[in-house]
């Protein structure tokens, strides 16, 4: 039972459903990556716990996501092998919709995150980038271990994946899309239409 409980806590994933990577991303230096994530988490907690209306908080979060997450790379990763099958127009539509869905998922429940705190852990090199560990605690919830995978993209450190309780958000998202596409004869337009419906 504990299994299922924590398993689905991992699904909390949705929270900061950021992160998928570009291929040309370079590995950053662990110290830099750790400093980058620490600053990011300070900014995030300052926003969600700070004053300001929900709309203001959402706008501030959106800005942070755009500057610190490699949204395009993440989007491409999540489409996987279907990226090359998509037309140029479909790729463009998909990226725009992916960004919108990501923003909705992150900023949609900003009110729920008030009181959130974090503790930094160690940073270490992995194949895909630098993994910076942290423990994120929401009031009334068990602490969650969240690893931030950072790569250097165009000279800037960017988040390419978030691993919540051992669950990679970009891998989870990719398996969702890939299963959906397999059941729709690999038709990328079907995915785009579905994302359209999701964003309303």
């Amino acid at each position: 039972m504990q299994t299922r409980r924590t398993l689905l806590a991992a699904g909390l994933a949705g929270v900061l459903a950021a992160a998928c990577t570009g291929t040309a991303a370079q590995a950053a230096v662990p110290d830099q990556a750790a400093a980058f994530i620490q600053k990011l988490l300070q900014d995030l907690t300052a926003i969600v716990n700070g004053p300001g209306s929900t709309a203001q908080k959402q706008a501030a979060l959106q800005k942070i996501v755009d500057t610190s997450v490699d949204v395009n790379g993440v989007a491409r990763f999540c489409l996987g092998r279907f990226w090359r099958q998509a037309t140029a127009q479909q790729q463009k539509d998909y990226i725009a919709l992916f960004r919108q869905v990501l923003m909705n998922n992150i900023t949609g429940k900003v009110g729920e995150y008030s009181g959130v705190t974090f503790q930094m852990g160690r940073a270490q090199s992995r194949d895909e980038g630098i993994a910076v560990s942290s423990i994120v605690t929401r009031p009334g919830n068990a602490p969650n271990s969240v690893d931030w995978i950072v790569a250097t993209e165009g000279g800037q450190p960017k988040i390419i994946d978030v691993i919540a309780e051992g669950t990679s958000l970009r891998l989870t998202q990719r398996s969702d899309y890939s299963s959906f596409l397999s059941r729709n004869n690999g038709n990328v337009q079907a995915l785009i239409d579905a994302l359209h419906r999701q964003t309303g």
Binding site: L7, A10, A13, G166, T167, S168, T172, S175, D176
Partner: peptide, 13 residues
């Protein structure tokens, strides 16, 4: 499919 992926990753971790 999402639950399948989450379950596997979670168990492995």
């Amino acid at each position: 499919a999402t639950i399948r992926s989450v379950y596997r990753q979670y168990r492995r971790a």
